[in-house]
Design a protein around this nucleic acid. Sequence first.
RNA 1: GCGCCGCUAGCUCAAUUGGCAGAGCAACUGACUCUUAAUCAGUAGGUUCGGGGUUCGAUUCCCUGGCGGCGCACCA
Length: 512
Amino acid sequence: MSTGTGQLLRTRQEKLAALRARGIDPYPRRCTRSHRSDEAVAAFLAAEAEGKLGTDGEGPPVEVTGRILSWRGHGRSAFAHLEDGGGRLQVYFRRDILGRESFATLPLLDLGDWIGVAGVLFRTRTGEVTVRVARWRILSKSLRPLPLAKVEVDPETGARTVHSGFADRQSRYRRRYADLAVHPEVRDVFRVRAGVVAGLRRALDDRGYLEVETPALQPLYGGAAARPFTTYHNALGTTLYLRIADELYLKRLIVGGFERVYEIGKDFRNEGIDRTHNPEFTMLEFYEAFADYRRMMELVELLVHEVTLEVTGGPDIDYQGARVSTAPPFARTTFYGALASALGEDAAGLDDDALRVRTAAATGEAPDEGDGRGRLLDRLFSALVEPALVQPTFVTDYPTELSPLAKTKPGEPGVVERFELFIAGREIANAFSELNDPIDQRARLEAQAGSGRAGDDEAHPVDEDFLRALEYGMPPTGGVGIGVDRLVMLLTDSASIRDVILFPVLRPEEGR
RNA sequence: GCGCCGCUAGCUCAAUUGGCAGAGCAACUGACUCUUAAUCAGUAGGUUCGGGGUUCGAUUCCCUGGCGGCGCACCA
């Protein structure tokens, strides 16, 4: 630890000791408050509107609690801003009101301390509603300086200008508590996140869906193409995996007779980390018996629209400079149709070698030797089509090679009944008419397992129990997966998934 | 995994061709009873990410390692 930090910490320790020496408990057991800061201001404004202010313009007495964010001392008086769950409130200390002893204790406070103050509200000369403090008490001493920025507020527009501050992204994720303490806008992101999850849950509950919980610890993983995290259960003496998708368990529940089920939970994928990938992430999956992918498309359209309205107050989303409208209906295109428009020719008619050439041209790199047809099509689509899908767009009818759990489309060989929803160039939802033919499903899973033996380490093992469930009989079913984190990114204009996950996965901190 | 950029005081950042390592904020001391990026005067705070090299001299140039950001690749 550098000398600088040591000094800062030591100074605060000394103030802590000085408080105790004066018989003050820096961490009292209890405290009281009458108003949150926003409620206090509202109470003052109400009294003012009703002409109930005192002769000196004083409003109602309040008792508020908060963290000290700024301090402006003026000799025998001082101004500070406190922050609590309701926002910021200015407080004003005067020696002639507090008395010598109470006032003389103020220098033992630091930015970051929690205090409680009691007094009447008034307006300062500049018009700010402020507590004229008659009594104050420390509620919790801060021993480590918060990376507080200076904030300049334009009195006319209310626009905030932040001077210096806490900018290092990794430090902010690592010390999220400090990031949150210092950045109200970060707290807002997670309020929106909670609203999105609540909105999705309500929308599904209202439509007769049953919320369920399926295992995160699984003896076999499946339902997506991803490498799993592996763990070990001591008592059973067996390997377990953290789930990579909920899909196969939720379909077992449809077999069991629940007609509409959903789960909002964590999936875990042992893969790289980047702007749109965190190793653990939140997935919403929902399945509806007697529905197909077209019905699910309408449902997804409504869900996205409803949640957007709820969270933003309107149908539009501003994401990274683009304005997106979630007003239904969303655009619809087919996988091969969109690809043909972008490519200038029909990809379905190209042989693998030609596809390989087109892919190399589109991505600027030669595809891997082992890439199969499905993989090539996927890469080509990602490079040529996805970035252009800014307005909400359903892409339907994917190649069978990419979709081992989806029903084929009648009359269109090589295509399955599947859609993905893209917004702002990102995949938000993935859905299909679920394959319920146990024999076809077995054949496709075994083909996947075969490619696993051939070296594709993301293909799955065959889940015999899942196939047994299908053999009992699963009704026609539509299923959808929505990446909740990515939806929250859109709705909060966040560039990185780490900005919408409170504690994203990071390399462990070295040393202390 | 590859490429580019970066790592200097608690925070945000400077430092000329390679020539005494600086500023603002935070902290500390003092002044100041309506301030709000408060102001004014002063003080302290540094393994310039680590290691090696070139040089009279390295924050600066070279090599190497670490960490991070961004982009690419990967991610049915």
